[in-house]
């Protein structure tokens, strides 16, 4: 048994808590992605600026999650903070973003 497995046996990870945390992250990401789509469409961003806007927005959301939801200690809530909190579900919200982006761009600009 390796050292990591021993550590996991001593401090076990509860699966339902992990699922709950992932669900919370995913909900926040989906909601904010749709709102970013509304903002990008209203601002009339096209092609690359729109996607860069989305990436910047998700970065800000990641920082807010880190500060308020994880209270500055992501390792307390996530087994792998890098992939679960900072990068988790970044592309899951992309389809919702494109949907509202297209809708509001079509309504406001084109």
């Amino acid at each position: 048994m390796t050292e990591e497995e021993r550590q996991l046996a001593i401090n076990p990870i509860v699966q339902s808590s992990v699922q709950h945390n992932t669900q919370v992250i995913s909900n926040i990401r989906n909601l904010t992605a749709s709102l970013f789509g509304v903002a990008a469409g209203t601002l009339g961003l096209e092609s690359y600026p729109g996607f860069i806007f989305y990436l910047l927005g998700t970065l800000i959301v990641s920082v807010l999650l880190f500060m308020f939801r994880a209270e500055g200690q992501p390792s307390k809530y996530f087994h792998r903070p890098m992939s679960d909190l900072w990068l988790g579900e970044v592309f899951g919200g992309l389809s919702g973003f494109v949907l509202t982006w297209t809708l509001f761009y079509g309504l406001v600009r084109a």
């Binding site: 909601l31 389809s95 919702g96």
Partner: peptide
């Protein structure tokens, strides 16, 4: 493709 979050909510 984009309505999955709506269904989630």
């Amino acid at each position: 493709f984009g309505l999955q979050p709506v269904y989630n909510f």
